[in-house]
Amino acid sequence: MFEARLIQGSILKKILDAIKDLVTDASWDCSPNGMSLQAMDTSHVSLVSVSLNSDGFDKYRCDRNLTLGMNLISLSKIIKCAANDDTIIIKAGDGGDKITLLFEAQNESEVAEYEIKLMNLDSEYLGIPDTTYNVTIKMPSNKFQRICRDLSQIGDAVTISCAKDGVRFGAAGDLGSGSIRLAQTATSDKPEDSVTISMQEALCQSFALKYLNHFAKATPLSAQVTLSMSPDVPLGEPLLFNVCVVEYNISDNDDENPSTIGFIRYYLAPKIDD
């Protein structure tokens, strides 16, 4: 028996909006600790990892580990039927071939019930090592989204150059070039507006904007985004250090005492040099 009740159903809507254009089919792994999903995009170039802790749910019951394989486009269509302030309840029986979704209106006068067929997915699961990254940039998520969108007008790739005092995002193409430089901010009254850089050494790497624009669809989930990267390492070293991680924390929207209940992490390798 699996049952998870999320008072802020809009969080689930935002998560699906952040992944459905990147990944078509994926499995939710449900355990007593929470729900998680890991999948590569269809071209196997980027990887998305979602985690929701059990204590982020108002009610959470998972008697035994379950894998719920499903088409995310279908799930997204059904989740869109929930109002933003609805409570969403996910239910699954042991060994069933479907899950039930209940949408409870805030005044509890209306309950909608939908079922989704499950799929048996034979997906490749990648082991992500626990890596220390040399450069970490924390910045407003809407600023990152805007930069990626604007630079897509100029070129297909963004070059991120990071030094202690700031970070520069640049792109070049047939029509010309463009760049945006963000300085590290002093301690701010509004932490959501701050730009924070933590680095061991300077870095300059290029990434495909097509994927970063997909990742930026998670912007409504979090006011800040974290980019973690490491400079190119010499040949023979493990390649994994080159991967960029774009992370959005998932918080409940408790205005007085917000807490992190999970995350979305996207992984992308730098573009291959021309």
Partner: peptide
Amino acid sequence: EVEQHFLSNYFSTS
């Protein structure tokens, strides 16, 4: 179109 490394070359398959 930007040419990209495949992530399966980076992470171990389990």
